[in-house]
Nucleic acid binder design. Structure first.
Lengths: 138, 138
DNA sequence: TAAAAGTACATTGAATTGGTATACATTTAA
DNA sequence: TTAAATGTATACCAATTCAATGTACTTTTA
């Protein structure tokens, strides 16, 4: 039950841009976050597509936040690179059957629980934003 | 951010034993849960080692719950097969550095958040038990 | 107009997950 | 007492997913 390394990298990148608040090119960003250049480029594209950061081409190009850091949530960054937060694959499917002796044809017993957990996680991650350092609770 | 299929299988198996409340051999259990026999054997061993179910050898052997279904939590079953619930690998590590211009040498910015989220998930999953069907909130 | 930068897509390598094979040990009914 | 039914243990293999890279291309601007 991990977030992927890619999501972790995306968080580092956004955090780095938020802290430094200047336009940074991919190479510098990669060096500062410890992500390989190529891989960071792939992540940067996703973040640009989502509208979290903005890119500039040409000789003085690079990347900046597209919106204030305080408006970017951790959850949004994570879901941007790894898709919606879900706990169990069988949420919404109702596939498997476990019934013997009169037992009603079961569907996944804990569907509702998994959905709830995913929602909890999502809410918590969307409540956390970049930019603020110590007293982060709004 | 998924629980593994293996954990899902383990849940099905325990649920199946909880519903039917009789000794079942591995083959029957596998058929009822839709898990392959071999793989279910592997999972069954882990559950036995954890003390959630009990095994009986010999001609009339098989598996039963070792304790009442109401005392077995979803979280315990999941952590039995896939280890402790954790969100981010860097929790507890404090590795990566992102500092430019005076920025203090950073550690993972959201360590605390990840730890909190993991704890929330864990608590919720440990509050859910097998055995009760509709009014499951205790 | 050429170099610096980003973009796109395809591919490769490594780790994890899911599933299997083989050999063995224990129990119990005949 | 013994053979068949069952569980146990270890090691192995295959498929998928994750992480990272390669190659070729486009846009921008000094």
């Amino acid at each position: 039950m991990y977030i992927t390394l890619e999501a972790d990298y995306a968080v580092r990148i956004v955090d780095c841009l938020a802290r430094n608040a200047i336009r940074m090119d991919a190479k510098t960003l990669a060096a500062h976050t410890g992500v390989t250049l190529r891989f960071s480029l792939k992540i940067l594209r996703k973040l640009v597509a989502e509208g979290i950061i903005r890119s500039y081409k040409g000789t003085q190009g690079g990347y900046e936040l597209a919106i204030p850091a305080q408006e970017i949530s951790l959850g949004r960054v994570i879901e941007t690179v790894e898709g919606p937060i879900i706990i169990s694959r069988c949420v919404g499917h109702e596939e498997y059957v476990c019934s013997q002796s009169g037992g009603k044809s079961g569907y996944c017993r804990f569907n509702k629980t998994y959905t709830e957990v995913a929602q909890m996680v999502r809410e918590r991650l969307y409540r956390e934003h970049f930019g603020l350092e110590e007293g982060q609770e709004e």
